[in-house]
Design a protein around this nucleic acid. Structure first.
Lengths: 412, 412
DNA sequence: GCAAATAATTCAATCGCTGAACAAATACCA
DNA sequence: TGGTATTTGTTCAGCGATTGAATTATTTGC
């Protein structure tokens, strides 16, 4: 989802305005202080007259509002600052995971305006039932959003598995889902969102991808190219290149958990051998640390591990070091291949970052040819739990910013 | 280099025409038969009136010309087919490699209109001298191109190494280059190209990247996302995503040769351990096959290897199988990560593809989670030797097609 | 030889950006 | 207190590019 407008086909008279609406709105979204119309004119290269006209459209459509004037120095008429509206369109984020359901609403500015988490073991629950619960939560979220003047214009659902173009969950191993037609199942419930041209009513995506998008849109803005690794039971990665999520040919990119780190090593349930997941997956770390291969929930296991490491437990420290080394081998492959300079550890890895980062960095500096010239940053995610749900909702909101014309064209 | 025009900043009245020029010209370039104005109108969504006006500009600027009408069925005024001009702007491709210099000229249609190769061991030659020889060859190429009515509007140089943003060759290990300021060295020679807005006079890039671009633009058009692996002394990869070369944050993507395939294996000159290059590099294959670690030129070694394998030599077959397996482990990593469905074996690997493909495919199907659902194609490159030079020249020509306004704006 | 069909051009209308002039609102200075 | 400089934002005539309908051009089929 790039912020630079890219017309797909013919460029007609009206496209001009569409593109400039997106350009100006994107600038307002990217600014760290409320810009004036004059600021926008110099920043975009448009004339002040054009910016005024464009801004008038944005104000009329409630996408932006005027804020208190930014503090100025020197003489002259004071500027009127422009900010993203805190009422208007918003995105609905949904997440089904192994041990929780999450729903959230994110506004244009990226603020999380609503958040509900329902903890439960979802493995024994039928997909249709899980989705029905999620819809129920989403209904409450919609009503809450409406009370704040927010209109839901699209939804994105994060699942821990592979999703095809049609939104069918082909395989979510840890959830036990296979070929679940999510869009069809959700279509049986009354719609919660207001259709807007250019914004899909529902997108279904891998949790790692959406968590990476959340990281991309978090404030303050970070780099526009990075690798986001979600370390849960499985290990997934979201690849962000030049400010856009890279999904691959079929949308199945980021399967970093099955990179072979010991090609002749232990067999993996994927059919391969020596996959990263066997060495740095949550179960591998937990059992290597000598904890009971318990049925304790994922987040508890991670917290316990961090506790032990904090206390200096030798087994835990060794387990984390070994996992970090394996992770580092895989990350070194990615960095060699894609020349990224930032790696974000998310999901369960975020809390373990203090112990994982050093061995990861060690492997990078040993194995990446170009690391000597320019360092690679490895850091924990800034988003907390349910990052995927937040990223999902944010991806909808960003869509409005990237293509405001659709929202403006709707009947008010 | 995407074909969809993407305005960076403000969209003004004139941008409209610029974008539609690119749109129409791109369609003409992508068509498999000469399209008529009416065809272009329906394909692009513009009106016939607009297409006529745009085509008039393109004809006046000698970017396209009218061809014999396409064979038609049915009644009606016959269409006038439009084809890319075989006179007009063209790209200059340059290549410095370990054992040859190459220069070529590619026109808008992607045809190689001139080609010169000078075989010599370049390792003992000082960079400035090597570039001077190249410039001499390029001068002859320019004169030859001019006789065919072609104007060189930009040059691209392929080198087997890492290049930074400024065009400085930071490290080309097999060539023995380090921190060679190519643009500065070339600036000492009289310019060979006519400057055109929007087309850089000189770009310097990794040979693997440019060979991948050559593959991208080869006819018939292949997939728009693929991995192109150049197997030479080193192993480099060009990553093409959605029709654009992915260069990474600093332009150093594609270092597939240093993916760890045996993390605790042999030390590599890069400082890592068990890098792919140690198992599937040209030297590794040659010595594993029992051939003298000879000083014989690279292409001879590859040819000899293919000969032996053809004859059923057990050592050669085993060496190729082992190399293919190592290559397959690395390729499986890439496919897991990027979800590509096409892998092209180029450079020295092209001739060895019959023996490399099977083990590569075997590793993919064993290690790639999604391979069961949709197969991955592994095939040799269609371009022959000096693919990088051809790709380099083609990248310049494509630039004109992507941004024709610059060429049209110049004084005729 | 004429009607039907398809291709390409012409032209008034319209849309949106530009540039310059103008109005608005403040700081600075005497 | 009043005037000037300065910056912001708006108004409006002008213009470039696309549109859509009408017109011209050229061929096939009957």
């Amino acid at each position: 989802m790039s912020l630079t407008p890219a017309p797909a086909g013919a460029v007609r008279q009206g496209s001009l305005r569409e593109l400039n609406l997106a350009l100006v709105l994107g600038r307002i979204a990217a600014a760290d202080r409320p810009p004036s119309r004059a600021d926008l004119a110099t920043a975009t290269g448009l004339t002040r007259a054009t910016v005024s006209a464009v801004v008038e459209d944005l104000l009329a459509g409630r996408l932006v509002s005027e804020s208190d004037p930014a503090p100025r120095s020197g003489a002259g008429r004071p500027a009127r600052g422009l900010v993203l509206a805190d009422q208007g369109p918003a995105g609905l984020g949904l997440e089904v995971n192994v041990d929780y359901l999450a729903v959230c609403v994110v506004d244009l500015a990226g603020q999380v305006r609503h958040r509900t988490v329902h903890r439960a073991d979802l493995r024994p629950v039928a997909p249709a039932d899980a989705l029905a619960r999620l819809v129920e939560m989403a209904g409450a979220a919609r009503d809450d959003a409406a009370r704040h003047g927010l209109t839901l214009v699209g939804a994105a659902l994060a699942v821990p598995g592979l999703v095809d173009d049609a939104g069918v969950v082909r395989l979510a191993p840890n959830l036990g889902w296979r070929d679940v037609p999510v869009p069809a199942l959700l279509a049986e419930h009354p719609p919660l969102i207001e259709q807007v041209p250019g914004v899909p009513a529902l997108t279904v995506d891998n949790e790692a991808n959406l968590a990476a998008l959340g990281e991309l849109h978090s404030r303050p803005p970070g780099p526009s190219s990075f690798l986001h690794i979600s370390g849960e039971v499985g290990i997934g990665a979201g690849i962000v290149l030049d400010g856009a999520l890279f999904r691959g040919v079929r949308g199945w990119s980021g399967e970093i958990g099955h990179l072979p780190v010991h090609p002749e090593g232990q067999p993996c349930r994927c059919g391969g051998q020596g996959c990263l997941e066997q060495y740095a997956g949550q179960e591998a770390i937990v059992s290597a640390a000598g904890l009971a291969r318990a049925e304790l929930p994922a987040d508890t296991a991670t917290a316990r591990l961090a506790e032990l490491a904090e206390a200096g437990d030798a087994n835990a420290l060794r387990a984390l070091h070994d996992a970090g080394t394996a992770l580092g081998v895989a990350v070194a492959s990615v960095v060699n291949l894609l020349d990224l300079d930032t790696v974000v550890l998310g999901g369960g890895y975020a809390a373990l970052a203090p112990w994982l980062c050093p061995p990861v960095l060690a492997e990078i500096s040993a194995r990446v040819l170009t690391a000597a010239w320019s360092p690679v940053t490895v850091r924990p995610s800034t988003l907390g739990a349910e990052a995927a749900a937040v990223g999902a909702a944010g991806s909808v909101a960003r869509r409005i910013i990237a293509q405001p014309a659709g929202w403006l064209a709707r009947a008010d």
